[in-house]
Nucleic acid binder design. Structure first.
Lengths: 347, 347
DNA sequence: CTGAAAGCGCTTACAG
DNA sequence: CTGAAAGCGCTTACAG
């Protein structure tokens, strides 16, 4: 492997000079520069980033922790994040907790070993907030609250809930079924902001005198489970006339409805929450509440930037041991708007 | 930041001893080990992987180059790859060429700068084979041929084509429309093995006296384009009674058929090629040819392992400058079987 | 079994 | 403007 030393020798200059030329920093005479560049070409020199990483204590890599990239929701999120990070010359390390046998803590471990510069946390975690706040490295959460000092970004799920409820009420729905995660996540002080759309729909339909039942969907990881969930809805609630759930659930519900000869949207309305590509592949164009993935990714990347900058800053000035997460002043959570897109599955 | 030196000082031993304890290599007396471990705990020591990386000239990271992870095909491939790599303690760097403004050559550049240990190439490239063979670092191609010495893995597309043709012929199809990539890729000596399933179907239907037209789909990146493609098929070929295309195309074709009141499968059969989750979300359970993603990922990872091992080996023994890609003896391409799964869209 | 030393390939003050 | 030196944090022969 040809290194800077070889280039320096070939060009008859010092290693420092080669470094200056490679990095375009500092002043180098045109004469020297030419000699060095010639030598670099001659030897096909390619700088080794690992040495730089060590010196800077930086990898320019961000880990994106998601349950699985097989799910369109997380694929979409990840794709948009990669775009944002690439703009900032940051690489995206795919960290899924369901696809690999690697839990979040192993990824956090890698963060602490400086294998990455930061983590976007968008997967489930059993850890208590004090776990997350004690890590003391750049972490930004998506759609969950990991504790004081860990900035977080989420969609405006309350608004999403209102949009859905308004549609259902306005179209004369009588019996709504909501599909979502484990009901245990709905406890007071939940760290899952997503539940807010469910809660909003439940509240508004109740006020309007509309029946609203809740069905727990299978794991986000398992598509087959969603199929079973869809079938179960019709069995358990034969008079259901509106189903609300994630794209995947909505698509499966539509498929099941067609199979049972139920007319959509006349007899049954379906609303998909998320608005990924999955919603476009269904049997009809699904009506949906679309999350603004581009906006979410931009906000997450922005927060990550700040976290990283704060870390660099505090390293220079702050005392080593003091555990102080960056940007204490961070909002409890940045909120990104959602939008309602009427399709062929509502009336 | 607390380093090995601090631990050594605290424990009253040398840095070498700390290193031995951390790595569990070599012999260390229980006495020393205990002292070191106590000190590590005391100081909350966490090893910095960057230094190791530099010494080993390794990152344990593999870049996966795909057009976009938004497409279920590549999401599925990537998810399975990550699983395989994780088993081998390798991390997965997401390298998409369409989501970010980063082309393959930038990723190759990163490979050469030792920001990763290898690349799985599954995206389009304009480069000639001599570009790829001259890189001289671990590269494994998926579903494309990048030149002598670059191992490659693909599905058995001929078999896939035969399965499709048999179904169509057996069910009495009269007018088949195949949807696929730009026809220019079909030239003699193409580096795109995928076209073999199209060619096989065309040949077999021709022999059976069945009409078979080819429609170019939009970019793999663009889902909306697929919708337009689907609509165009029905306009251009009003008597079409069988459509074959990727999951996404098939799903959109089904949607369009239902919209036009065309009965599937009685009047129109649809076969999806790939067999990702996208095929399950469609209006009906699509009949499909499923690629064995797990098998593909395993084969790719296996080849990558060999490439990396070969690189390490040649580094020790071989002379530096000699460009010689690992495993010259690699097969022209490893072939993974596909399977036919009957759904509700064929008869 | 343990320690002093050299080195991974680069960067950055610091003299000149 | 250029070079010699120290150092990023760890690993690994090599003496003892």
């Amino acid at each position: 492997m040809v290194g800077m030393r070889d280039v320096a020798k070939e060009a008859g200059v010092s290693v420092s000079t080669v470094s200056l030329v490679v990095n375009g920093t500092g002043y180098v005479s045109d004469d020297m520069r030419a000699k060095v560049e010639a030598a670099m070409h001659e030897l096909h020199y390619i700088p080794n980033e690992l040495a730089r990483n060590l010196y800077r204590n930086r990898t320019n890599t961000i880990g994106v922790i998601v349950p699985t990239i097989l799910h369109p929701f997380f694929a979409t999120l990840t794709a948009h994040l990669q775009r944002e990070f690439a703009k900032r010359d940051l690489k995206t390390l795919l960290c899924s907790t369901a696809d690999a046998a690697t839990g979040e803590s192993e990824y956090v471990n890698m963060l602490q070993r400086h294998m990455m510069d930061g983590i976007i946390m968008a997967a489930h975690t059993e850890h208590q907030p004090d776990y997350w706040t004690s890590i003391n490295r750049p972490i930004v959460a998506f759609d969950r609250i990991l504790g004081e000092g860990v900035p977080s970004v989420r969609s405006d799920h309350e608004a999403g809930g209102r949009m859905i409820a308004r549609q259902l009420i306005g179209s004369g729905a009588r019996h709504v079924v909501l599909v979502g995660g484990p009901r245990s996540q709905f406890a007071e002080g939940t760290t899952f902001p997503t539940v807010r759309y469910h809660l909003t729909v439940e509240q508004m339909t109740a006020e309007a005198g509309i029946a609203c039942d809740y069905v727990e969907a299978g794991s986000v990881t398992d598509v087959v489970a969603h199929e079973a969930t869809a079938a179960a809805i019709f069995q358990r609630y034969p008079d259901v006339d509106a189903i609300v759930g994630s794209d995947v659930v909505a698509a499966m519900a539509l498929q099941e409805a067609e199979r049972r000869g139920i007319n959509v949207p006349d007899e049954l309305q379906i609303i998909a929450y998320d608005g990924t590509m999955a919603a476009e592949l269904a049997g009809k164009r699904l009506t949906m509440v679309r999350q603004d993935f581009a906006g979410i990714a931009a906000a997450l990347a922005e927060q990550m930037d700040q976290q990283i900058e704060a870390e660099n800053g505090s390293e220079r000035s702050g005392q080593a041991g003091e555990p102080s997460n960056a940007s204490e002043s961070a909002q409890p959570g940045q909120v990104v708007p959602v939008s309602f897109i009427a399709g062929e599955t509502t009336r």
